[in-house]
Write a protein that binds this DNA or RNA. Structure first.
Lengths: 209, 209
DNA sequence: TAGATTGTTAATCGATTAACAATC
DNA sequence: TAGATTGTTAATCGATTAACAATC
């Protein structure tokens, strides 16, 4: 996987969190925020906030704080969210359909351009204006819609094959929801999201209390 | 949040991963596995595998390896997955509906017992045999179904209120899909899953390459 | 026994936090 | 100026990895 040097993975996740607080603060009319207020809102330490930001530049004014709108814009730029991203979802099952309609993606700059499946019954149908295509036309549609991101929402046994096809079609980033480890070339960015594993953190901590 | 001493959070996530490989290996007839083979299958180092397991006991035989079935059972016990867990989903929107039908939960021991919403149009309906109830009867149903886990799939602005209700109803663990930090008492286990943030890791790494 | 692999210790690496000079 | 808050360094903390004795 491609990695920018020395910046902890967790920092990226926190930047995302900070940005959500910042836009909320700005919309409420709060123009200046401090590392302390960001920390309070997001559940981290003020030192952590300043350290996270320091990886990318100097965005504040000593003695004053940060301009909420400006810092928001800086973070969005850092996260690559200063543009919109067309996204393909592979798998028109329950999960794929839900993700295609999840508003949270759209709000942050992601547009689900199309959904792919290999079930003839589903091909040609639409999900809230998003077309479902056969996997055979993946490469063609990826080019047509300039898609760089793919979401794998197929069963585990099909995930690696789908990943290979995404890579072949020219996709650069993959979010994998299938409960299996897939492998991709070094120049492809991969992220696995295991919904059940998230619940398993809860059950782990709930046992033996 | 409740934490067992000294065990890294990441270890729990990896145990979940190991267990998936182990059951697959067992079902293929592979009775003995090594830390090396587990590592290869899950993308970690063999030392990491052994260290993760060592937090909980001695499960292998020196010179031989681990019995796949036995180690699987041990890990499932550690994760609290040696029993089934009734789960409530709050929010019958796109995400809530998809999660309620997501097979990955059922496979790992989670049963979605009921869905809650406050939209009168949705109350009384069913989603693949799961009833949708009004939030007003949350406490009653939590007791009836012995529910200990709740999944919040409502918009951000409603999330804290829903969390408070879940706690009041006696729920012990919460998975929050709303893009906001909610607060809960110390004895409640909370996990936030931000789907958009996962995509934002991809866009971060894809920028500036 | 020789070869293999675990369980564990010590070394290394990396992330977080505390502290404070810089400066508004 | 006095008070506040950043940006950054050094100290601390915690997780991962390497190495190896134990032992099958």
């Amino acid at each position: 996987m491609i990695k920018k040097a020395k910046i902890p993975d967790a920092t990226i996740g926190r930047l995302s969190l900070y940005s959500r607080y910042l836009i909320e603060a700005y919309e409420k009319g709060v123009t200046t925020v401090s590392s302390q207020s960001i920390a309070d809102a997001t559940g981290v330490t003020p030192a952590q906030v300043r350290k996270d930001l320091a990886y990318f530049g100097e965005f504040g004014t000593r003695g004053v704080g940060y301009n909420s709108k400006e810092l928001y814009m800086h973070i969005m730029k850092i996260l690559g969210l200063d543009k919109r991203w067309p996204v393909a979802i592979i798998g028109a099952g329950n999960l794929g359909r839900a993700l295609s309609q999840y508003k949270g993606f759209h709000e942050r700059g992601f547009d689900i351009s199309c959904i792919f499946d290999n079930d003839p019954k589903k091909i040609g149908k639409k999900l809230s204006n998003i077309n479902i295509y056969h996997l055979d036309v993946l490469e063609e549609k990826v080019k047509e819609f300039k898609i760089e991101l793919g979401i794998i929402a197929v069963p585990a046994q099909a995930a690696q094959e789908v990943a290979d096809k995404l890579v072949k079609a020219g996709i650069r980033g993959i979010m994998n929801f299938a409960p299996i480890n897939i492998t991709v070339p070094d120049n492809i960015v991969l992220r696995r999201v295991d919904l059940s594993a998230q619940l398993e953190y809860l059950t782990y901590y709930l046992e033996e209390i």
